[in-house]
């Protein structure tokens, strides 16, 4: 796919390779719209005004657009991320007062995402180092909930205003969930061994990487994340395209339009067992919204899909007792619910 836009080995100056890649990227970005139109026009026997043509157009258009955005965003964020480590994050949080600490935890959660297999050791590392349970939870919720890829894709599909509101509500959900869990004093529902861990703390001594190494790391991230994400992405876009072309106009308006107050909770409940990542859900959200689903409902659905997933809960069960796990799911789901209603009311 578009992976070829990143040169395999940046020779001499890393900046030259970057500039070349950026040029190729810009050229592709400028031409995917016309390309999608051209595909629809040139497929033999396809009436450009038919529903099938619309479906194909949506699929081609969104696949290329999202793939391009994905590559650029993951690359940029991965480069940024080489400047911050989890160890520094933890040290920052440990020394903060409550209010600043929660806000910081949510923000850091956004810029420091971790793969779900790191959620557990990260939880242990934070809590055993004295970061309060609530703040750790805020971090843990913010990270998948306000995903940098999702932010860019939402901005691309719905505009910067909606993206800003998504970030704001997501951060609020994360902070509120953490504060509530912190207030409830639920430390007793954390598996006890977590508190008795004494890391040797030595871990890795970080060497300051060169730009060349930062770019190499980022290229690796692009490859591994796109490699993992693309099936979700294609399925999401295919479903989105099908909804876009074939779903009856009034179906979603009747069941999930602004007039139905139960639409948000149903969307959140549907999203919990579903597991996908942000990139895969955006085309779905886009198509649903185009068919009349209220935007807050659609965003709540997306948040629920990405923030609460069964695989991650299974992993977290190793450090959280079942009751705390239930509280965690409950508080986060309630927060997403509130965010959905709020967005529906505002937009």
């Amino acid at each position: 796919m578009t992976l070829a836009t990143r040169p395999e080995s940046a020779t001499r100056s890393p900046w030259r390779g970057l500039a070349a890649a950026a040029l190729i990227w810009a050229a592709l970005f400028a031409s995917y719209g016309p390309f999608a139109g051209w595909v629809v026009d040139t497929v033999p026997g396809l009436d450009p005004n038919s529903r099938l043509a619309e479906v194909i157009h949506f699929f081609v258009f969104d696949t290329i657009k999202i793939a391009l955005l994905l590559v650029a965003v993951i690359f940029a964020v991965s480069v940024l991320r080489t400047f911050v480590s989890l160890e520094q994050t933890r040290a920052l949080l440990g020394g903060r007062g409550r209010v600043v600490g929660y806000a910081l935890a949510a923000l850091l959660g956004v810029v420091m995402p971790f793969c779900s297999c790191s959620a557990v050791p990260m939880f242990i590392g934070f809590v055993s180092a004295g970061v309060p349970l609530g703040m750790t939870m805020t971090f843990l919720v913010a990270s998948p909930l306000v995903n940098e890829v999702a932010v860019i894709l939402v901005a691309g599909s719905f505009g910067v205003g909606v993206a800003a509101m998504y970030v704001a509500t997501g951060l609020t959900v994360a902070v509120t969930a953490g504060v509530i869990i912190g207030r409830l004093g639920l430390e007793r529902w954390v598996e006890p061994f977590v508190f008795s861990v004494h890391g040797n703390g030595a871990a890795l001594h970080d060497v300051r990487p060169t730009w060349q190494e930062r770019f190499a790391t980022a290229r690796g991230e692009v490859r591994s994340i796109v490699g993992k994400v693309w099936p979700f992405l294609l399925v999401g876009i295919a479903i989105g395209a099908a909804i876009h072309g074939w779903a009856p106009e009034d179906l979603f308006v009747r069941w999930a339009g602004p007039g139905n107050p139960l639409a948000v909770p149903v969307a959140v409940l549907l999203g919990i067992p579903l597991y996908s990542n942000a990139a895969g859900t955006i085309p779905l959200v886009e198509a649903l919204h185009a068919k009349g689903v209220a935007l807050g409902t659609a965003v709540a659905f997306m948040m629920s899909v990405v923030a609460l997933s069964v695989p991650e809960l299974v992993l977290l069960r190793r450090v959280l007792k079942p009751r705390l796990l239930v509280v965690f799911v409950g508080v986060v789901a309630a927060g997403i619910l509130a965010a959905g209603y709020l967005l529906n009311a505002v937009i």
Binding site: G125, A203, R318
Partner: peptide
């Protein structure tokens, strides 16, 4: 998990050589 945590790593997978962490999270 207990043993993993005792190495002080917060990102997985990690590689330990002769009890020294040389790699984490990639």
């Amino acid at each position: 998990l207990n043993e993993i945590a005792s190495y002080g790593v917060m990102r997985l997978p990690a590689l330990v050589v002769d009890e020294r962490v040389i790699l984490a999270g990639r």
